[in-house]
């Protein structure tokens, strides 16, 4: 009778997940590193399709670990992570790339391929997914236009500003039309103007129906979004507000 012992919110999440209303479901996930430091402790929450969720918290609160769990970059010590009815950590390493193609990722440090131009960086994600040349030729200029970088298509990352690099990264994340985009501190290295632009692009993508998970500790961004906010502290979820503000 384990279900009865659980907290009501947890049980509700699982039920909603079973009814397929939920796209992502963290089921009592904990992560303890080898040195016994706790990164996540009993974290449960669910994400519905089309949601825009911000995860906030101080550095070391466990935001990035949470994101890495969803990408199967790290395995939980306890609990499970489900993405579209699949237990992410039961997918073998040889098949994990198929799951990752459904998730677009944007990182604080951009993580572009330095030896490839902006165009090639975006095209790479499509090539890796085995898309046809014609699709690549039509889609890449389209997303470059969406992030307003058409004239920088043939520049290498080191020839682009931070904001431009991040926009390339976003273009790369959305080009395969993923079901969800994870943006891990995407504005952490950007000035206010570029931060505003990146957030506007994310909002636009969300308006088009893509689920967004954004981690940040930028108060201005959170307060302007007026979307759901999950607040983390020392590996635990301390608040989960439907239309939240940055409260820490």
């Amino acid at each position: 009778m384990q279900v009865l012992d659980e907290e009501p919110s947890c049980r509700e999440g699982r039920e909603r997940y079973n009814r397929k209303v939920v796209m992502i479901y963290f089921d009592r996930v904990s992560k303890v590193y080898a040195d016994n430091s706790i990164a996540l402790e009993d974290v449960s929450f669910s994400v519905e399709p089309g949601e825009f969720i911000s995860i906030v918290g101080h550095s070391g609160a466990g935001k990035t670990t949470l994101v890495k769990m969803l990408l199967a970059e790290e395995k939980p010590t306890d609990g499970s992570v489900f993405f579209e009815s699949i237990n992410v950590h039961e997918v073998p390493l040889s098949r994990i790339n198929h799951l990752r193609r459904k998730i677009g990722t944007v990182f604080q440090d951009f993580r572009l391929l330095p030896q490839k131009t902006a165009y090639e960086n975006i095209a790479f994600a499509m090539e890796a997914a085995g898309r046809h040349e014609e699709e690549i030729h039509s889609d890449v200029p389209h997303v470059l236009d969406l992030v307003d970088l058409t004239d920088k298509a043939n520049n290498f990352p080191d020839e682009l500003s931070g904001g431009e690099q991040q926009r390339v990264a976003i273009a790369r994340a959305i080009v395969n039309q993923p079901d969800v985009i994870i943006a891990d501190e995407p504005t952490g290295n950007l000035d206010p103007v570029n931060t505003f632009e990146v957030v506007q692009i994310l909002k636009k993508i969300n308006d088009l129906g893509t689920t967004i998970i954004l981690t940040t500790h930028n108060k201005g961004v959170i307060d302007s979004l007026k979307k759901r906010v999950i607040t983390m502290d020392r590996g635990r979820i301390v608040r989960d507000d439907r239309e939240g503000k940055y409260i820490l």
Binding site: L93, S94, N97, R111, L112, L113, F124, A128
Partner: peptide
Amino acid sequence: REEIQVMRLVGAGSFY
């Protein structure tokens, strides 16, 4: 090595 990791996260298969 970082490029390889990025390629993995972008969804490229091992062989590719």
